[in-house]
Design a protein around this nucleic acid. Structure first.
Lengths: 208, 208
DNA sequence: CATGGAAATGAACGTCGTTCAAGGATTATT
DNA sequence: AATAATCCTTGAACGACGTTCATTTCCATG
C-alpha cells in the first residue's frame, strides 16, 4: 500500500492550481497570496512549498494550464473549417485568440506579468507554444507552398506576434483605447494585408 | 525669497525620478523599493510620499520619461529622412523602436509591467502616445492619401501594435527565442507586407 | 527675533513570501 | 501488533515590503 502520501500530494497539487487559477481569474495576478490560498484549500502555508518551489512556480503552473486551454480553443475552432482557404482560417484563428483573451483577461495577462523564469524549472511551456505556432504555420503552408519549413515557422511566429500585439495593446485601456469590434477588425485587416503582401512578395521573388 | 521649500521639493522630485530610473534600468521594475530609493537620494522614506501618492505614481513618472525618450529617438531617426518613400520610413521607424527596446530593455518592460493606473492621476501619457502614433500616421498619409484621417489613425495604431507585438514576444526569452537580427527582419517583413496589402486593398475598393 | 503653520522624519503597522524546528503520520522491522 | 525509523506537514517566526502618522524641524511672515 505504498503511495498514500503521494495521492494526497497530487490531490493537494490539483487543488492548489485550481484555487490559484480561480483567484487569478477574478483578482488578477497580484491578488494571488500564499496565505489566502492556504486558507481556501485548507492547508498550511508551508504545505504550498512542499509542492512548488515558490509562488512563481505555482503561477507558472496556472499559466501552463491557461496556455493549454488557449491551444485547445484554437484547435476546436479550426476543426470545423479544415477545407476553407488559408486567409479565412488565419482570420478565424486570430479572432479565436482575441475571443479567448476577452473571456479570460486576467488569466491571459498573468502569462505576461510573470517575470523571467529561472532555468532549473520542470515546466516546459515551449511544447504548447510550438503547437500554437503550428496552428498558424499549417494554413501558411498552403499559402506559401514553396517556402522552406524553417522560414515558414518564423513567418508564422511574426504573424502570431503581430496579432498578439494588437490584442495586447487593445487590452490596455491606456494607449488609445479601442472597442472590441474595432480590435477584431484590425486583426482581420492585418492578417489579410499580411497574407496579400507575403504571397505578392513571394511571386515577385519567383519572377526575378 | 518665497519658495525655498519649493525648490527643494523640485530638486527632490528630480532626484527621485532619476534614481528610480537608474534602479529600474539595471534591477528591473521589481527592484524598485522605497527604502533603497530613500537611501540613494539621501531622504527619509516618508519624503517620497510627500511628492508621489505611492510608488506606482513614481514608476509612472519614470515610464512617462521613458516614453518621451522613445518618442524623441523616433523623431530624430525620422528627421534625416523626410523625403524617402513611406515604406522605408515606416521600416526605419520600426527598427528605431526595436533599437530603443534593445538599448533600454528594463525601462521599456516597466511600461507594461505597471498595472492599471488609477483615474485621479495627474500624469497624462496619452499625449506622448498620440505623438508616437502620429509618427506612424504621417507616412501612411502619403501611402493611403484618400483615406479619412480617423480611419488612418486606427490603421496606424494597428501597424504600431503589430510591430510592438513582434518586439514584445522577441524580448521574452520563452516563446520561441529568436536572435535580434531575425526580429529586425520580421519587422521589415511585416511592415512591407502590411503596406503592400493595404494599398492593394485600397485600390481594389476603388475599382469596385 | 519670535511664532504659527507647513513639511520632513523614521519608528511603527500590517502584509507579503519564505523558512524551519517541532510534532504527527506512514512505512519498515521485529 | 508493537516498536523504530523515516518522511511529511505544520504554523509560528523572520526579514522585507509599501504605507502611515505623531513628532520634530524648518521656513516665511509680523
Amino acid at each position: 500500500m505504498t503511495g498514500k502520501t503521494q495521492k494526497r500530494r497530487e490531490a493537494l497539487r490539483a487543488a492548489l492550481i485550481e484555487a490559484a487559477e480561480r483567484r487569478i481569474a477574478d483578482s488578477g495576478f497580484r491578488g494571488l497570496t500564499a496565505r489566502d490560498l492556504a486558507k481556501e484549500v485548507g492547508c498550511a502555508v508551508g504545505a504550498i512549498y512542499t509542492i512548488f518551489r515558490d509562488m512563481d512556480a505555482l503561477a507558472a503552473a496556472v499559466n501552463a494550464r491557461t496556455t493549454a486551454r488557449l491551444e485547445q480553443a484554437v484547435a476546436i475552432a479550426l476543426a470545423g473549417e479544415t477545407d476553407g482557404d488559408a486567409r479565412r482560417q488565419l482570420v478565424l484563428l486570430g479572432q479565436t485568440y482575441f475571443g479567448f483573451v476577452l473571456d479570460n483577461p486576467r488569466l491571459w495577462s498573468a502569462i505576461f506579468e510573470l517575470g523571467y523564469r529561472g532555468e532549473g524549472d520542470d515546466l516546459k511551456p515551449e511544447a504548447e507554444h510550438a503547437r500554437l505556432i503550428g496552428h498558424v504555420a499549417r494554413p501558411l503552408e498552403r499559402l506559401l507552398p514553396d517556402m522552406e519549413a524553417a522560414r515558414r515557422l518564423l513567418v508564422a511566429r511574426s504573424l502570431f506576434a503581430a496579432v498578439h500585439g494588437i490584442v495586447s495593446l487593445g487590452q490596455q485601456s491606456r494607449f488609445m483605447p479601442v472597442p472590441p469590434s474595432e480590435v477584431s477588425a484590425q486583426i482581420a485587416f492585418i492578417i489579410e494585408a499580411f497574407c496579400d503582401g507575403a504571397v505578392r512578395r513571394r511571386q515577385g521573388e519567383r519572377e526575378a
